Computed example of a mutant assay.
Amino acid sequence: MATLVDSRVLLDLLTDDPRWAAWSAAMLEQAATAGPIGINDVIDAEISVRFAVPEALDAFLADAGVARLPMSGPALFLAARAHARYRARGGTRSGVLADFCIGAQAAVEGWSLPLLTRDTRRYRSAFPGLDLIAPEGSESSP
Rank of each mutant, 00 (worst) to 15 (best):
G129F: 05
F51V: 09
G103F: 00
R85F: 04
S7L: 07
A2N: 06
S112V: 06
T120Y: 06
A56T: 07
L13P: 12
P54E: 09
A26F: 05
V9A: 01
S24F: 03
L28V: 12
R8N: 11
S7Y: 03
V108F: 10
S141L: 15
I37Y: 05
P114E: 10
R8C: 15
M27P: 14
L11M: 14
A26T: 01
W23T: 03
V96F: 04
D44M: 09
G103A: 02
P54G: 14
L130Y: 06
A62R: 14
V96T: 15
S48G: 11
R8Y: 08
D131S: 14
M71S: 13
D41Y: 11
T92V: 14
R8S: 13
R19M: 09
A56S: 03
P135E: 06
L78K: 08
I133Y: 01
R68S: 13
L97I: 08
R68L: 15
S112C: 02
W111P: 00
A64W: 03
E29C: 10
L69Y: 03
A134M: 06
L13D: 09
A82D: 15
P70S: 07
F77Y: 15
S48F: 04
E55R: 07
V53R: 13
S138D: 07
P135L: 01
L78S: 14
A25E: 08
A52I: 01
L78I: 12
A31Q: 00
M27L: 13
S141G: 13
S140K: 13
A107P: 08
A52W: 00
N40Y: 12
F60V: 03
T33R: 14
R118Y: 04
E46K: 01
E136W: 15
R81N: 11
V108R: 05
A107I: 13
A80Y: 12
P114L: 04
F60N: 07
A88E: 10
A52Q: 08
S140H: 15
D6E: 01
S125M: 07
D63C: 09
P36H: 11
V9L: 08
A80L: 15
R85N: 07
D16Q: 11
P54R: 03
E139K: 01
L76Y: 09
H83Q: 15
G95S: 04
A88C: 09
V5R: 00
A82T: 10
S140T: 14
R124Y: 06
A26I: 09
A67W: 02
A52T: 11
F100V: 04
Y123E: 13
S125W: 15
S138Q: 01
S94A: 13
G35L: 08
G129A: 02
R50C: 06
L11Q: 13
Y86L: 10
A82W: 10
A75K: 00
T3Y: 01
Y86P: 03
L10M: 04
D99F: 04
L115G: 01
A80N: 14
L4H: 01
M71P: 04
A75L: 02
G91Y: 11
M1R: 00
L11H: 10
R81C: 07
R122S: 02
V66S: 02
A134S: 12
L76N: 11
L4A: 05
L4I: 00
